[in-house]
Each structure stands twice: as structure tokens, then as C-alpha cells.
Amino acid sequence: MHSKPNLLQKKQNAVLQLLSTEQIQEKLANPTISAVSLTFPITNLIKKQKFDTNPSLLSYSLTSSGFKDWYADIETGSSLDLPQDNLIQLYWDVILIMESQFLYDVSHLKKFQNHLIDTMGTRLRYNNSKTLRDTRSWRGLCDNYMMVYLPLIFDDLIWCKYDSVYLHVVLPPIESWRKNDGKQSTCKEWLLSLLELSNSLDLQYLRLYLRRNDSNTNDLTTLLRNLNWIGGRILPNENRNELFDTDNNDRNGFDNLMLGDENFVILEFES
């Protein structure tokens, strides 16, 4: 029973391992940098491409203008310097980790992985980059996937995906939140950094997925109680009964049965 959850953990460890390059570590050691993110389009999954398939590295740091902002790290450029096969493996792992956040039972991870590869393959075959997508729901696969590391706030990576309108962000479980020594400002700090990230990607909305079990903890209670004040709103969870009523071919059936957002409180902010 416990071996399956470990598979997901292994994937996360593998991602962290691949990110432990000298260049990235050097960046994280830089005290002026508050966060880094690595983002890639799903078209990078296609093998034998001529163009550079390294992920884009963004840093969140104090700019010369006096405030923190995200900027693309041109200097570091191809930061990971990995063989393409390893890169592609990394990308699949990131996509799997992000999408499996909504998996009810991680013991079905292997089956879900096969399903995901199948679905993503279909999407890539019919991908039309000229079409702007509006993937409101966490259910849809996105054109871009992303990892964010906010080391001053969270121990774990933050998994994200986006198309042209929404940045979907799954916050790590509360165990990985760093103790803030009673400082009240951390909530504002991480929220602002994610809002700025969403803005720098030219997206209009940030959707945050907070684990429902964590919603009674101080940090999240503070966020929820200030939600109106800071321009956020809660979104209803999906109605699973309605999903069961829709056409139920095999693929939809798997999606509907195995995935759900009941374990999350979903918040939305303009960015």
C-alpha cells in the first residue's frame, strides 16, 4: 500500500535531484533572489527537436527599481544542461506530479500515468499553438508546466500549469511551510510573488489550490479571512454528480472517477 505513494515521492526527489545543478544552487544561495521558477511548454516533450528544449528560468529578486519582480534569466540560459532524454523525463515527471495532485488514490498512479501519456499525446498531436486556450478548470491539461521554489516560505516545490488566462498553482502541504516566527507578513509575501509571477507570464488570473485539511491552520486562516479585502474569491468545488451524468467514454470515465478537487479550497485572484 505504501509503495505506490513512494513512487510519487521518488518522482519528486528525482526532479529535485535534477534541479540541483551548480548554477541553480548558486542562484538560490544568492540572498537577493527570493524565488526561482522553471517553466516549459509541453511541445518540449516532442523528441528530436532542433531548438533548445531547456526550461526557462525565472528569478524573483529585488530589481534596480527597488521592488521585487520576476525576470527571465538570460545569463544562465540553458540552466540544466541535461541530455534531451533526461530533460524529457524531467518534463513528464513534472506533468505527472502536477496532474496527480488531484488524484484521489495514489495507488493508481501507474494507471494514471499511462492515461496521462495517452491524453497528452492526443493533445500534442492536435496542438495548435495559434489557438489561445482558456483552461479554467484544473482538469484540463495545459500548454505549459512550471515549478516554483520559494525557499524562504516553503520547503517543497510549488507545482503549476498555465495556458493563456489562468495560472493554476497547487500550494504544498502545510508540513512544508516554514515557520514564520510569528511574522504575519509571509502570507502577503508569497501571494504577492505568485501574483507577480502570473502577471509576468501575461496571465489574467491566479488560481490557488489550498489543501482543505490545511485550511484551519493560522497562515491559511489569515488568508481566507482577508480574502475579500485583498480582492480574492472562493470558487465552488466541481459538482461530481454532474460529471457522472455526462457522456462516459473510457477516458472521461477515468478522469471523472479518479480525479477530483474535493480535497482543495480553490481561490481566485486577478493578476
Binding site: 527597488g66 521592488f67 519582480d69 504577492l192 507577480e196 502577471n199 479585502w229 485583498i230 480582492g231 493578476s271
Partner: peptide
């Protein structure tokens, strides 16, 4: 809004909304 994203401030400027609150140095920048 006490959590000011750069885009919000740019938007306010574009719409000529001038009155705004602040409570930290970063917002001033």
C-alpha cells in the same frame, strides 16, 4: 488593495485613478 501587483498600479495609472493607499517601501518603488 493592500496587496499591490505591478499590473494593478499600471492599470490605475492608465485609468487616471490617482488616490491610492500604501504601507510599505516596496509599494512606493
Amino acid at each position: 488593495n493592500p496587496c499591490k501587483v505591478s499590473s494593478f498600479i499600471r492599470f490605475a495609472a492608465k485609468q487616471e485613478v490617482k488616490k491610492s493607499t500604501f504601507d510599505n517601501v516596496e509599494e512606493l518603488y
